[in-house]
């Protein structure tokens, strides 16, 4: 893993978040949520600062980060694509939709495209089962997605006409 050097103000930001939660070890998950929300991901160096801020071992932080699928150590794409793999979506063809996204973008689940624009993840039930199969890009939800529509969805973002979805 390439070592990254955190900017002084990033370190301060993380430490401030820890302070906000009274530097309590038991607030680790809240802190991770907030830091990931600000930085987009949780690389090793960030976890080290959090460990310091909460006065706990970095192994513990890493143990927690790797336990919960919501936390990621890899930067997400500018447009994070999530394919719902809940049962309702599965029986309505989510697997084929996922396969098509992987094929179109040439990346595996959990990876980002080389240009950093897209990343693919699977998630479990967004609760829009009426629209199965469902794909989300950022916070935008696409319902009843057919594999043939995948190309169109990607193109929509690639051309940069949708800026409302830049959310982490």
């Amino acid at each position: 893993m390439p070592k990254i050097k955190l900017a002084e103000n990033t370190i301060q930001l993380i430490l401030n978040i820890c302070t906000e939660f009274e530097n309590k070890e038991s607030e680790l998950i809240n802190v991770l949520h907030k830091v990931q929300n600000k930085l987009g991901y949780l690389p090793a160096e960030v976890q080290e600062v959090i460990a310091k801020g909460l006065n706990c071992s970095v192994a513990k932080v890493y143990g927690v980060v790797t336990f919960y699928s919501f936390f990621t150590m890899i930067p997400q794409g500018e447009f994070p694509i999530s394919i719902c793999m809940g049962t309702a979506c599965y029986v309505r063809g989510a697997e084929q939709v996922l396969a098509e996204f992987k094929r179109q973008l040439q990346v595996e689940v959990g990876e980002s495209t080389e240009d950093g624009k897209f990343s693919i993840n699977c998630l479990r039930c967004v609760g829009a089962c009426g629209l199965a199969p469902v794909v989300t890009v950022g916070e935008k939800v696409f319902g009843r997605v057919a594999p043939s529509e995948v190309k169109k969805i990607i193109a929509e973002y690639r051309e940069g006409c949708r800026d409302d979805s830049k959310t982490a």
């Binding site: 893993m1 090793a44 976890q47 706990c56 071992s57 970095v58 192994a59 513990k60 932080v61 890493y62 143990g63 790797t66 336990f67």
Partner: peptide, 25 residues
């Protein structure tokens, strides 16, 4: 490592079949 020695090097990481005890990262 954690409770007795409070050194904090080892922790269970990952989950399910991939879980194992390891130092951070």
């Amino acid at each position: 490592c954690n409770e007795v020695q409070t050194v904090g090097v080892l922790s269970a990481i990952n989950r399910g079949f991939e879980s194992v005890v390891s130092p951070a990262f």
